[in-house]
Write a protein that binds this DNA or RNA. Structure first.
Length: 712
RNA sequence: GGCGAGGUAGCUCAGUUGGUUAGAGCACAGGAUUCAUAACCCUGAGGUCCCGGGUUCAAAUCCCGGUCUCGCUACCA
């Protein structure tokens, strides 16, 4: 492929509702940064954009929980996340935010354009509206009398008593649960992106044109979606937090967060252009721009199917590649901030990157390990022990040690200067060294172009390894012993050290995309300007001028001590245990979906005794249990309530084997309206306690008692 | 349950269109060395390529079935 005229690199917009962990870093930001730094070293025209994703329901929900405003939440996390990236050397050209007016403007324009061209579909319907709360009401916010059974507390989506699925219109005497008033009917329109219209385009573009240059997991995921039949997707929502829908009928609606967030890449580019007095348009419109999205595997559909359709309709360029990474686990388990099982970037920075503790060298140590175990083809696992071994055994012992011994010997044997070459004493090994460096450069360049960062970094380390071997063969320290008797000794020492020094300069260039702080430090040691790090200089052996005096040796990294690793492991267990206790001592709810994270500390609204009295709780004994066909989570239980036996379905199949729970005494909500699931009617509900790790426990009497006993 | 991606040495991973004794680094063992952050260098040992069938002269690689992990999706009163 010809070299593109310019590049636009994006890294997934982090959601500004909390801190981000090193799994996020390894998944998207670090590979994106390596790629962008490499391209910049190649003197390509590159813009690397990112920013906070600040819309969506989870943010106002979190605000309610913290007793503050949505704005306060994003204002709290946006700057922390931005600074965390900076501290870890992620060199965005701009870190923008979707709450910025420029983004609202950009997203509005985008929407209006598609709307005007007829690329969106609308579905208009009458929906209930609460005048007092001035908002449309989601189905579950409406109560009324069930047309089927006459139950007076039926919800807009379903009657809990008879289990019938309802639409709000069917309710008799509907009431808003927000204000208690009767809602009025009002016409509302929602907009849809008809993905189904673009199936042919997606098939051709992804499955035909990119079948060989995109990662298998990415292609597979896209194929799965396309084959599964594409559906129109709603792009608006009744919510007041986000980008207002900018066309008639859009009052009280915002763009759905998945529609607005990727447009954030565009608005970030615009802001960058303003800041730097550039034109943003070619970056999104000119086919000679190469667009690359770096994301984690959970984001594939949005960046490969949905956003490209939007871009195509809007007249923008399409991504050239979407190198999605798999996930990084931690010490044998999935990373999870809410469970305390993670390493926050913020924590790592505060603990490890303090000047007295190793400073930026330890930012690069982390970058090194995360790249060495990058989940490029399958999930990988961060272990503190692995971190220590990788840093100590490769980064320090091979790479940094080569530079250090070079510097020490140069000062001892070459008068602290870059020695000259004595051509008459150059041998095969000296010549081979130069060729090896040129080879390595070619190899590393090729790997970087293919987004194979793990392997590319390995090749850089390997080059340092070759340096060690070269020096070992030459043994300048032995030659130095014979300097009085062997008139050729100094010349040979000079040749060797010259080679090692030029190799060091090359290493600085090649390691720069991966470990930028280290490359800077090496420039300092070499007394050269950062311009030397330009990629075209790699493979040259004249980077350091003969006779030039260099700085005294300085260690590039420090080793990681056993005690530090043990402390981290202890801390990790403690964090997880603390979260667990914190959550076990608070009432358990059954949060679902996106609202799940962090909801457990919040009590539900107060109720009166009569409310409680409506619930008939009983002790039941499980007498039969079996898995429900075609459902991963459901168990079908036969429960003895003393006066009767009933079938109850429960979503616990992931946690318990049917044969293990027969005979268990459990707490049953006995008067819950029956509900059909997977074609089987469930008459009641089993109460479960859930800990921070998501593990479920039965709520049972402390001693066996008669089935059917009441609970109050 | 449907779909997708994975399962190769103790660990992290390579293995191009099927082709001799399956590779690398780390860790481990032995040796050599001392310029260097107990670092480097040399040598070595380590594998039922998840399991079971099949195709083939030949399978880690292709086909079928099973199993485990992760993701998307359904489902989770």
């Amino acid at each position: 492929m010809n070299t593109p005229k310019r590049y636009l690199i994006t890294a997934a917009l982090p959601y500004a509702n909390g801190l981000k962990h090193i799994g996020h870093l390894a998944g998207a930001y670090l590979p994106a940064d390596i790629y962008a730094r490499y391209l910049k070293a190649q003197k390509r025209d590159v813009v690397f954009v990112c920013g906070s994703d600040e819309h969506g329901t989870a943010i106002p929900i979190q605000a309610t929980k913290e007793g503050t405003t949505a704005q306060a939440i994003i204002d709290k996390y946006h700057p922390i996340i931005e600074q965390n990236f900076k501290d870890l050397g992620i060199g965005f050209d701009i870190y923008h935010r979707t709450s910025d007016p420029l983004h609202h403007e950009t997203a509005s324009e985008f929407f209006k354009d598609l709307e005007a061209k007829g690329d969106l579909e609308t579905k208009t319907s009458e929906q209930y509206f609460d005048e007092a709360a001035n908002t449309f009401l989601a189905d579950r916010y409406i109560k009324g009398t069930c047309p089927n059974c006459g139950h007076s507390e039926a919800y807009g989506d379903q009657c809990e008593k008879c289990g019938k699925s309802l639409s709000p219109e069917e309710l008799i005497n509907p009431v808003s649960t927000l204000s208690g008033n009767a809602p009025i009917k009002k016409e509302t329109t929602h907009w849809y992106l008809p993905l189904n219209r673009h199936e042919d385009f997606l098939r051709k573009w992804i499955l035909a044109e990119h079948a060989n240059d995109w990662r298998p997991a990415v292609i597979g995921q896209c194929k799965s979606w396309i084959e599964g039949g594409l559906q129109p997707r709603a792009v608006t929502r009744d919510l007041d937090w986000g980008v207002k829908v900018p066309v008639a009928g859009g009052d009280g609606k915002v763009l759905y967060v998945w529609f607005d967030a990727p447009i954030g890449y565009i608005s970030a580019t615009k802001q960058w252009a303003i800041n730097n007095n550039k034109d943003w348009k070619p970056y999104w419109n000119d086919p000679e721009t190469k667009l690359v999205h770096f994301i984690g595997k959970d984001n594939i559909v949005f960046h490969c199917i949905i956003f490209p359709v939007m871009l195509k309709l809007h007249g923008n360029i399409l991504p050239e590649n979407v190198p999605a990474n798999e996930f990084m686990n931690l010490e044998g388990d999935k990373m999870s901030t809410s469970r305390g099982w993670s390493i926050e970037m913020d924590d790592y920075i505060n603990k490890w990157i303090k000047p007295e503790n190793g400073g930026t060298g330890l930012a690069d140590s982390l970058r090194f390990y995360l790249t060495a175990i990058a989940p490029e083809s399958k999930d990988s696992e961060f272990t503190w022990k692995g971190f220590q071994e990788s840093v100590n055994g490769e980064l320090v012992s091979i790479f940094a040690n080569f530079v250090n011994r070079t510097w020490v010997l140069m000062h001892k044997l070459c008068n602290s200067k870059v020695p000259k070459i004595h051509p008459e004493y150059l041998d095969d090994e000296d010549h081979a060294l130069l060729l090896t460096v040129k080879d390595a450069k070619e190899k590393i360049t090729g790997l970087l172009e293919l987004y194979k960062f793990r392997e590319a970094q390995f090749e850089v380390i390997n080059l340092a390894r070759i340096g060690n071997q070269y020096m070992q063969k030459k043994e300048p320290w032995i030659l130095a012993k014979n300097i009085d008797t062997d008139p050729t000794a100094q010349a040979k020492i000079d040749n060797c050290m010259h080679g090692c020094l030029q190799l060091s300069a090359n290493l600085a260039i090649l390691i720069n995309p991966f470990l930028p702080f280290t490359a800077q430090k090496m420039c300092h040691l070499m007394k050269v300007v950062p311009k030397m790090l330009e990629w075209e200089n790699a493979g040259e052996f004249n980077l350091l001028k003969v006779g030039y005096t260099l700085r005294p040796p300085e260690l590039l990294f420090r080793k990681i001590e056993d005690a530090e690793i043990e402390a981290e492991l202890t801390q990790l267990s403690a964090n997880a245990a603390a979260k667990k206790i914190n959550m076990e001592t608070t009432p358990v709810t059954t949060p679902t979906g996106a609202d799940k994270e962090g909801t457990k500390n919040e009590l539900k609204p107060e109720i009166v005794f009569d409310d409680f009295g409506k619930i008939d709780l009983r002790v039941g004994t499980i007498i039969e249990a079996k898995k429900v066909e075609k459902a991963d989570k459901l168990l079908e239980l036969l429960v003895d309530l003393g006066f009767e036996q009933r079938t109850i379905l429960s979503g616990i199949a992931m946690h318990f084997k049917p044969e293990d729970i027969v005979g268990k005494q459990v707490t049953i909500v006995a008067n819950l309206a029956p509900r059909k699931m997977r074609g089987i009617e469930s008459k009641g509900m089993i109460l479960m306690a859930e800990d921070a790790a998501g593990k479920l426990y039965f709520v049972s009497p402390s001693e066996a008692i008669a089935a059917g006993s009441t609970i109050a």
